[in-house]
């Protein structure tokens, strides 16, 4: 029985609704009768091993792929061929490999491309280029050709181009895999701010525990079905779920497990500070003076 997500924000209309979605590729059923409802403004992380159907799911949502059966409703509008462009204009999609989405000859052109297609006035285009270039630390790279950028810089340029179009839903398909932890943290903070301030609905596909735990909700896919759907902090401490999704237990969770084997039970957590706090509490109860002076 999969764990079901207990939503606090049930009254909000769903931004994305998938009803009994099945996706067949040749003889292989990639997604099997999947039903998910994502309220507007929610940050959903999707985890699963390579080939579990994560990217297929994301591509179905913005109409890059068509479901074999079932219904997809985006902001109350069924995803059908006739209004696929309306839907796509609301959904930003960042691919794992940024090279897949460059069009312009410079970073500036690339950001401008989507905006020109939205028929925005010139001043507004320039204003958005400056805003999003600044947000993603690209100002100095605006006149560079995308091919001369490093992997991380390319990914930020791709992100700026999509964010500048101000979509209501943003899908990041392993988009941080090329970024170093410094920029990944910055990007997570930036996403967090957009999510809170602009009620941006976010879908992030990732293998990174830190990224997964930043979301409001985590859906774990395995072999085309939902294995678990709940709060990241509740799911990511479950070894069998981590194993099924081929996620590596974070060091701190391993430490909790090893400590229990040593007879020190401080529960389970993926948060380093929480574990340290529990250890402090345990230590101070044993030798309060030494700990106080050391800290």
């Amino acid at each position: 029985m999969p764990l079901m997500y207990n939503q606090d924000d049930k009254h909000k209309p769903p931004a994305i609704q998938l009803n009994n979605i099945r996706f067949q590729r040749g003889s292989h059923t990639v997604l099997k009768q999947l039903s998910i409802s994502i309220p507007a403004g929610q940050w959903v992380a999707i985890a699963g091993c390579n080939g579990s159907g994560k990217s297929t799911l994301a591509r179905l949502i913005n109409g890059l792929l068509q479901a074999s059966s079932g219904k997809i409703i985006i902001h109350g509008q069924p995803l059908q061929q006739e209004h696929i462009y309306d839907v796509r204009s609301q959904i930003g999609y960042i691919f794992a490999s940024p090279d897949d989405q460059f069009i312009g000859l410079t970073v500036r052109d690339d950001i401008a491309f989507g905006l020109e297609n939205l028929c925005l006035p010139r001043e507004q285009i320039e204003q958005r280029i400056q805003t999003y270039a600044k947000l993603l630390h690209l100002t100095e790279l605006l006149d560079r050709h995308p091919a001369t950028l490093s992997g991380g810089q390319k990914q930020r340029a791709a992100l700026a181009a999509v964010l500048a179009m101000q979509p209501s839903v943003l899908i990041l398909d392993e988009a941080t895999s090329m970024l170093d932890s410094h920029f990944r943290d910055q990007l997570l903070q930036c996403l967090q701010a957009l999510h809170v301030e602009q009620q941006l609905t976010l879908i992030t596909i990732s293998h990174d525990i830190k990224e997964l735990s930043a979301a409001d909700r985590l859906i774990m896919l395995h072999d085309g079905v939902i294995l678990a759907d709940g709060k990241p902090e509740d799911l990511l401490i479950q070894q069998q779920l981590l194993k099924a999704c081929r996620l590596e237990a974070p060091y701190v969770l391993e430490l909790c497990k090893e400590l229990r084997l040593q007879g020190i039970d401080i529960g389970e957590s993926i948060n380093e500070q929480e574990v340290l706090n529990k250890l402090w509490a345990l230590l101070s109860s044993r030798s309060p003076i030494a700990i106080k002076s050391a800290r």
Partner: peptide
Amino acid sequence: IDKAGLQIPAAYELYAALQKPL
């Protein structure tokens, strides 16, 4: 570490936090 955009592995961080008190 900061300039290279790295993150100190949890193992080192936890060890460093525990080193003095323990």
